[in-house]
Design a protein around this nucleic acid. Structure first.
Length: 374
RNA sequence: GCGAGUAUGGUGAAGGGGUUAACACGGUGGAUUGUGGUUCCAUUAUGCUAGGGUUCGAAUCCCUAUACUCGCC
């Protein structure tokens, strides 16, 4: 069975919407934030801990699982859910992003057939094509597969972007033509950089291919925030209302709020877990660095308004000690906190949508988020 | 007690008369947005054990003291 999007409520003062996405592994409400589990695990967290923070859906990575352990191993295990003992919905990225960051010479390595690049594990030359990406994802048996697209850097010329969008459309068709997993949905990806007409064209042509959902790609690749928000505004009007919309790679609290206001339903990002491994934590008063000397004897929680396990039981001084001593429990506590922070954020956004007060919610959030800690 | 050697930042150390004292670790900040978990950037000794001397100029040469290390009684 394919996923099904059910619209619950639209905010009267913005494009924000509250919905439910039904999948074979349960339903979850949107807008949602998806923790990233690149190698079939959300780094440092168990599936039980994911449930505890009310994580509803996670993202895993085609590229990494293809190289190791290999999609056939995962298929033999009974698919990704069984392999990793996770019974919630899973979305797999197509590998496009990794491949483009690994392709040395964009002009030479990105060809019509696919992308040539070198393995980050052993350096051997590889070719990933739209068909192969979809076939791997079919075998991984995720609930949602992503089309293999080109994610150009920022900025590129209009001419390059136009050709890139055309190629991404051809690749979307090629991928869709070999997709054959009836339990797996397939998303198309809108590109076009900061060029409004290319965004519109990319969105309209992608929608014609009738995917199960649409994502906005090519964001958070170095452009400023205003440009990113404009990219969303230039894409959303051409996407159907009865399908989910996914903004790829965005996980900054402010960006999530801005995305929701513009009509985005799904977000994923390594940001919260990567920040955690580098000792940073989201708080209602902005991002803090737990390694800072000022927390050495701070026996208060990271964020006293947070309901996560780390904030209920541990102090900044203790977590700082763990991070300074390079104990992995510190990364785990901070990952739990940062993920819970973003999940709680989308929970509050859904509530605000129901009350038609998303714009007010943003104002209230911004008021404290940019205030420096005393 | 006698003889020899060594003293450079928080740590390990380079430099053996010429200008701003190398490098590494650590410390302190910062960065991180479809994850290459071990990454990147900035900053960190107005001073070379303490005094005195030689010299235009001393971390570098000389003297004394102190501390440590090794050997002998």
């Amino acid at each position: 069975m394919k996923i099904k999007y059910e619209l619950k409520h639209k905010d009267q003062n913005s494009k924000a919407r509250h919905g439910i996405l039904h999948t074979n592994y349960g339903s979850f409400e949107t807008p949602i934030f998806m923790p990233v589990g690149t190698q079939a695990t959300v780094k440092t967290l168990s599936p039980e801990e994911l449930k505890e923070i009310h994580s509803a859906v996670i993202l895993s990575n085609t590229y990494h699982l293809w190289l190791r352990p290999g999609e056939d191993v995962v298929a033999k295990a009974g698919g990704l859910h069984k392999f990793m003992n996770y019974d919630g919905p899973i979305l797999t990225d197509s590998g496009g992003f990794q491949v483009f960051s690994l392709a040395k010479n964009k002009k030479k390595d990105i060809v019509e057939e696919g992308v040539h690049f070198k393995s980050h594990l052993d350096g051997r030359p590889l070719l990933l094509t739209p068909e192969l990406s979809i076939q791997i994802q079919n075998k991984l048996d995720s609930d949602i597969a992503m089309s293999f697209d080109e994610c150009p850097p920022y900025p590129v010329t209009y001419e390059y972007m136009k050709q890139s969008v055309e190629r991404t459309l051809r690749w979307a068709k090629r991928g869709a033509s070999v997709h054959n997993n009836p339990n797996q949905s397939l998303f198309g990806i809108v590109q076009g950089g900061e060029f409004a007409d290319l965004r519109k064209w990319s969105a309209e042509e992608t929608v014609k291919l009738n995917f199960d959902g649409y994502s906005i790609g090519g964001t958070s690749v170095g452009e400023d925030k205003k440009t990113m928000y404009q990219m969303i505004d230039d894409s959303i009007p051409y996407l159907p209302e009865d399908k989910p919309r996914y903004l790829m790679g965005v996980g900054d609290p402010i960006d999530i709020i801005e995305g929701v206001i513009r009509g985005i339903d799904m977000f994923d990002c390594v940001h919260p877990t990567r920040l955690a491994r580098h000792a940073h934590a989201f708080t209602r008063h902005g991002k803090i660095n737990l390694k800072n000397a000022k927390y050495k004897e701070d026996f208060t929680p990271i964020d006293d308004s947070c309901d996560c396990y780390a904030c209920k039981h541990y102090t900044k001084a203790y977590i700082r000690h763990l991070m300074v001593a390079e104990e992995t429990f510190g990364s785990r506590l901070l990952s739990i906190h940062n993920l819970r922070f973003l999940i709680r954020l989308v929970e509050e956004l859904r509530e605000a949508i129901d009350q038609d007060r998303v714009l007010e919610y943003k104002e209230e959030f911004m008021k404290t988020y940019y205030t420096k800690e005393s």
